[in-house]
Design a protein around this nucleic acid. Sequence first.
DNA 1: CTAACGAAACTTTTT
DNA 2: GTTTCGTTAG
Length: 636
Amino acid sequence: MTAPLSPAVDYLSGLNEQQRQVVSSADGPCLVLAGAGSGKTRVLVHRLCYLLDRGVPASSIVLLAFTNRAAREMVSRVERMMGSCPRHLWAGTFHHIGNIILRRYGRHLDIPQNFTILDEEDSVRLLKDVVDGFGSPEEFPHARKIREILSFSVNTVTPLRDVIASSMPRYASCAHLLEAVATEYQKRKKRLNALDYDDLLLQWHRLMTREDIGRRISEGFRYVMVDEYHDTNRLQSLILYQLARVHRNILVVGDDAQSIFSFRGATINNILEFTRVHQDAKTFTLTMNYRSTPEILALANDIISRNRIQFPKKLVTLRTTGVKPVLVRCSDARSEALYVAQRLFQLISAEVPPSDIGVLFRSRYQAAELEIELTKLRIPYVVRGGLRFFEQAHIKDVIAFLRVAENLREEISWRRIFSLCDGIGKKSLERLMEVLAKSATLEEFAAAVQELKLPARGEETVRTVFAILASIRDNPDPAEAVDRVLNNFYRKYLEKHFRDDRERIEDVEGLKEIASGHDSIQGFLAEASLQESFRGERHAAGLPVVLSTIHQAKGLEWRIVFVIGLCANHFPHQSATADIRALEEERRIFYVAVTRAKEDLNLTYYMRDAFRTLPSRKSIFIEEISEGLVDEWFYS
DNA sequence: CTAACGAAACTTTTT
DNA sequence: GTTTCGTTAG
Ligand SMILES: Nc1ncnc2c1ncn2[C@@H]1O[C@H](COP(=O)(O)OP(=O)(O)OP(=O)(O)O)[C@@H](O)[C@H]1O
């Protein structure tokens, strides 16, 4: 290999000494432990460039991030720095990488190449079906709850029984029944040729522990890098261990104070045990914050210092003095929305780029009032959090057609499709499912349905469905497929059943546009279940203001940040106030929100909840702020 | 057997 | 706001 003309030293500029150390010497297992805004992500990007520059093939590097958006952002930064796009770099969430690997090597585990990925709603539906089959006599948790428990058990690598005993003692009495449900659920997934989100990790791990194939995969990955390591779970740490077992070049970066995903099994034990699990691991720390003004950091430090079960940490900055964070009291949720909307309007009128502004909240519903006001003022925005674009009912309805075209056995989508059919009710649906179970091909199924003597109207709609599916199979172009479903069937359904059919049709047309970026249905379906895109994110007019849950704002930054809804009733979340560990995690969520701001931080709360007779008051996280760290305003 | 209507009971955070 | 349940008419 010839020496590159541009020396690797380029990628060491724009870094401080501690950061340079990591970029140039993070071989072997390395843990970078550093606070918010200290340049962890920047270090990963520079390290990537450094490796590529020295001739490491992109295809032998895997970058695991918490969201696909974050991974894309890092890759595009690499691209900007190197001036070219690194081809075949592995970058994405654990689930995304797991999906690719299982498509490629799944046959070693008897997983067919065309498996369907069940999203959360699909899993719950399947579980509900299983539970109904059991006929629950006593008090039994809701399918949603069961999914949560099973998922937690998989992600923490803990037997179901232990999960129930430790976090769901209420259901200890029916633990045996829950285990039976779990077993049946696994069987049903197998029969449907489907994997749920947890399986993407679980089966990937199973694959990695196979001596032959696991070693071969690991051999392919010379460098493994992980961002946001504090929000990985035990199963993920086991995958990483196997993934890096040949070359042992594993670089993880994280900050225990920003761990906010314990509800899906994330644990800072992964950080704490890293040097023990990976022999001879090096530890690096970055101590300088480059993001925020001293005033913002003073508040952040004050907030996190209230946590008892937390390693003490103080952020230090070189940035010059700015303005104190502002705390604004409003009368109710609407007036808070009015205040924020007006401020945004002023800022944007004063030529502040909307993309410099972020509005953050604990829960998705807290953005509702603000959305109304922003629409009135014609301020473009996107909301990140809550229901993803691909999880909307009308999108899933259309996707269901592509899913069964791809995987005939996938009953969840069949049920979905048939319940859209005029003239098909509960009884016909069950009969159709019985026939499906006995059919090996689409033709067989269609033929058997003819014999069924469905009600006349039902018969006709079902025939339309089969015609559409046959045409999708003959011409498996994703965009064409979406178009055919919409125009030969679904448009009529929407017009008949919904007042907001126009919007929904627009969404489906948006779906078609996304589909046109794919040449295989399988690739398109993977995007639909694994990408975290939200409504309006794609075709947003101009640069929209971002409204985001704090969870979705991880790793991001804005010059101006608003954190809204800091009321006792909403933040910390109600169910998290009793348990100290849960409460401290809520405090970390607030800490993450505050540390997103570079220069200008605005905190708002209100005194009256519209739908409650109880008065509201400020969040305890606001109450406990030390004297003199914020300026208090009132808005009415 | 299906469709349509209204009441009631949920609604944290994510892949 | 949305899903789920029961009731009733066709
Ligand atoms: N050496 C440096 N010189 C100048 N700016 C820097 C330096 N290191 C980091 N920054 C800037 O500081 C900001 C925070 O960096 P980065 O996002 O990498 O931090 P982080 O540690 O990943 O933060 P978080 O933990 O909040 O995700 C970015 O705007 C980045 O460009």
